[in-house]
Design a protein around this nucleic acid. Structure first.
Length: 487
RNA sequence: GGCCCCAUGGUCUAGUGGUCUAGGACGCCUGGUUCUCAGCCAGGAGGACGGGGGUUCGAAUCCCCCUGGGGCUACCA
């Protein structure tokens, strides 16, 4: 039985890279019919950010990623918050101390700082804990404890030899033990560090595969030696290529919009995000790129995960989201868009039937143009308000032309007489005016579009008029009569 | 600096020794459709597969070196 976990730490709203890791774990579990576990690694009390755990869960659920064990759903291996498992880590850390595989270190942060300064002053290329407390005699340790000095527990790394492992993505890799220092396992506040908690929980929760970012490769000598010291069989490891910003640095806040919840708010669709994230480092091996979750789960394999870093560009995500928006039924599109229009104040929070029906006719008009749902606001605002911006350059271009006054007058007269203001009738009448004026179609259509929407781009003019309705159309055409000027 | 990872067009990626004068996608450009934009359709530009050595009849594909980029180097994850 495959058991994998996503183990975020609640130190802020998760960014795309974190969620990509969660998705790969989830897809791997589903592909193998295994379990996907969510474990909260809240072992850093200083960096804890309230609310970030909710963002993590919200992001996962929004993507349709449900965890089989973890917060809210429980499970046989709980608790799933590391802060609730402190006694376990402490017991194991002390056991290691008794076995001589770890030791108490009484160095203060100031001691360590001085040590590093001294090493640098001596021209050392690398600063590394000098293991001074590893050499303390039992009497010295007892004396310090009796004096009530705070301490951390450090792992006693082997001083020689190498340790290696077979990475499912990178292949065999090995490290020289002497190059890794005696890392802290248990902090002076009694909380474990990632290195300890992660190994203990992965073992206790019977995790079979650890799938995480490449930045963890360098911690492998610590983890592998810890497993060895504990006498535990390590799980399989797969390190995912890093997600990079356009400057090729590891993706982070510095790159702007990288928080996953920002993507949700912008109006990316869950299916599109799922699809795109799956392609951040993985591909199905053929030319397909638009893939459903079911297809991704069916086709996924770690063997097809690339081992080179992935530069995250928004362009392709935007394109893909557009593809998914265009595939939406009119009803789905409306449901997705209404909240954005309400949020923008273009529609009331409580929709009455006529208003809703109107919005249902407006929104689909711009479906093919939307890249993100939020686009609906700028694309359709003139349908919902009268004080929309006017493209002055377009007004200057058209409203200085000689046929415009006559055109407006004639259009208004004929539209007023129309009984049914549907697209076909409006088009018929408009074409009559075009013929009567003896001008090209565009010479009427373009200035009318500017009159009705204030812009030069937009939906098909006649459908737009039918939706706007006779009253609004006439009002706006009359207003446009005031734009006419000679030049 | 040390250790480790990575290296195919601007970006993502196919490619696992011959079928590659390197395929696909995004982006970009052109044309078509059309009342505009978008969409859709059809074309196009853009790579001497980072460089140098090998191995081989034959290398984008295997090996080595170099170069470049990145990650880690905390009582953070």
């Amino acid at each position: 039985m495959v058991r994998v976990r996503y183990a975020p730490s609640p130190t802020g709203s998760p960014h795309v890279g974190n969620i990509r890791t969660a998705l790969f774990n989830y897809v791997f579990a589903r592909h193998h019919g295994g379990k996907f576990i969510l474990r909260i690694e809240d072992t850093d009390r200083n960096r804890y950010v309230p609310g970030s755990e909710d963002d993590i869960k919200w992001s996962l659920r929004w993507l349709g990623i449900e965890w089989d064990e973890g917060p809210d759903v429980g499970g046989p291996y709980g608790p799933y918050h590391q802060s609730q498992r402190l006694a376990i880590y402490q017991e194991i850390a002390h056991r290691l101390v008794e076995e001589g595989k770890a030791y108490k270190c009484f160095c203060t942060p100031e001691d360590l700082e001085r040590m590093r300064e001294a090493q640098k002053a001596m021209g050392a290329a690398t600063t590394m804990y000098d293991r001074r407390c590893r050499r303390l005699t039992p009497e010295e340790v007892r004396a310090r404890e009796a004096a009530g000095l705070p301490y951390v527990i450090r792992f006693a790394m082997p001083l020689e030899g190498t340790i290696g492992y077979e990475d499912l993505i990178h292949g065999y890799t090995e490290f020289r033990n002497a190059l890794t220092d005696d890392f802290v396992m248990l902090k002076s506040d009694g909380y474990p560090t990632y290195h300890l908690a992660n190994i203990v929980d992965d073992h206790l929760m019977e995790i079979t595969h650890v799938i995480r970012g490449d930045e963890w490769i360098s911690s492998m000598p610590r983890h592998l030696n810890l497993y060895k010291a504990l006498g535990w069989e390590p799980p399989k490891f797969a390190h995912l290529p890093l997600l990079l910003g356009p400057d090729r640095q590891k993706l982070s806040k510095r790159h702007g919009h990288v928080q996953f919840v920002e993507f949700i708010k912008e109006g990316y669709l869950p299916d599109a995000m799922f699809n795109f994230l799956a392609l951040c480092g993985w591909n199905p091996g053929d030319d397909r790129e638009i893939l459903s979750r079911e297809e991704i789960i069916e086709l996924f394999s770690l063997e097809r995960v690339s081992d080179n870093p992935f530069v995250f560009h928004h362009d392709k995500l935007l394109w893909m989201n557009g593809v998914y928006i265009r595939r939406l039924s009119k009803e789905q599109l409306v449901e997705y868009c209404l909240p954005y229009l309400q949020e923008a104040g273009l529609l009331p929070k409580e929709l009455d039937e006529p208003t809703r029906a109107y919005a249902e006719r407006v929104i689909p008009l711009e479906q093919e143009k939307m890249k993100v749902l939020k686009d609906v606001v700028s694309l359709t605002d003139f349908f919902f308000r009268d004080d929309y911006p006017i493209d002055e350059a377009a007004v200057r271009k058209w409203y200085t032309q000689p046929h415009i006054p006559q055109m407006l007058e004639e259009l208004i007269r004929r539209y007023e007489a129309l009984e049914s203001f549907d697209a076909e009738s409006v088009e018929r009448v408009t074409r009559e005016v075009i013929a009567w004026l003896g001008v090209k179609g565009g010479e009427v259509i373009h200035p009318v579009r500017v009159a009705l929407s204030g812009r030069t781009t937009g939906p098909s003019l006649f459908e737009m008029m039918a939706v706007l309705g006779k009253e609004r159309v006439l009002k706006r055409l009359r207003r446009a009569q005031g734009w006419v000027r000679s030049s």
